[in-house]
Amino acid sequence: MSKRIDVEHLNVYYGDFLAVQDVSMNIEPRSVTAFIGPSGCGKSTFLRTLNRMHEVIPGAYAEGKVLLDGDDLYGKGVDPVTVRSMVGMVFQRPNPFPTMSIRDNVLAGVKLNNKRISSSEADELVESSLRGANLWNEVKDRLNKPGSGLSGGQQQRLCIARAIAVKPEVILMDEPCSALDPISTLAIEDLINEIKTDYTVVIVTHNMQQASRVSDKTAFFNIEGTGKPGRLIEYAPTSEIFNTPQKKETEDYVSGRFG
C-alpha cells in the first residue's frame, strides 16, 4: 500500500480549452500533499487527473504522464476503472449512497466487479474501515440505518471509510471540509494525520490554515486571468511555502495580499 506519484508535463484540456498547463511534480508515499490556490486555478481539475475522474466530464482529456510507482495511468490499455480502485477519492460534499445502509456504504467499493466476500470478512472490514475513519464508536449500533441519516461530518468520515475499505494506494480529497463545521473539520484533519501512515494523501483546500496544519508539502497553483490556463507556481515543503516562499506570487497569496 501507498505508492509514489510522479507527474510529468501534464496538460489538461476541456475540449479546446487548456485548463492546466505543464505540471510536473513528485509526490512521496506516506505523506500529505496540499494543493492551494484561488478558485478556477485548476487544482481540482489537476487532482481529478490523478485518478482519471476528469474523464467523467464530456470533452475533458489529459496529455502527459502520471506515474504510480512507475506505471503510467494514461498508458495504452489502462482501464480507468482499475485506476480508480487504486486511487480513491473523497469529494467536496459528503456523498454516501442514500439508498444504502452505513454498512453497505462501507462495502460498496469492495463488492464491485463481482467480488464476493464472506459475511464474517465483511463484518471485520466494516469495523476496521470505520475505526480507520474514527467513526466506529458513533455508528456501531446503527450499521443498518441509512448513511444519509448521519451528520455532515459523520457522512464525510463514512465516505473516507468507504474509500479506505477498498485499500487504495492513494487517497485524493477535493476540499473535504468545505461543507463542514469547525469541529467536524478538526475530526477530518486528525483523521488525515492518522491515515497518512498507510496512504499517500493529496488534498485540495481553500483553507490555508488547514494546508499548514495537515500537509507535509504544499503546491501553489495560480491563474493569470480568466481564459488562461492554471499553472503550478511553487511546490515545496509546507513550512517553506508559508514562511519563506521563493516566488512573489506565492508570497502574495499566502499572506493574503492576493490580486
Binding site: M53, R84, M86, A108, G109, R162, V166
Partner: peptide
C-alpha cells in the same frame, strides 16, 4: 440523478453499469 452520487460510485472503481446499479437505479426507483 445527482452527479455527486454517480461520481461516488465511479471513484470507487465502478464500471458504468455498476455506477448505474449503485446510484442511478436506487435514486430513480
Amino acid at each position: 440523478t445527482p452527479k455527486l452520487h454517480e461520481e461516488a460510485a465511479l471513484a470507487l472503481g465502478a464500471t458504468r453499469w455498476e455506477m448505474i446499479r449503485m446510484s442511478v437505479l436506487p435514486f430513480a426507483r
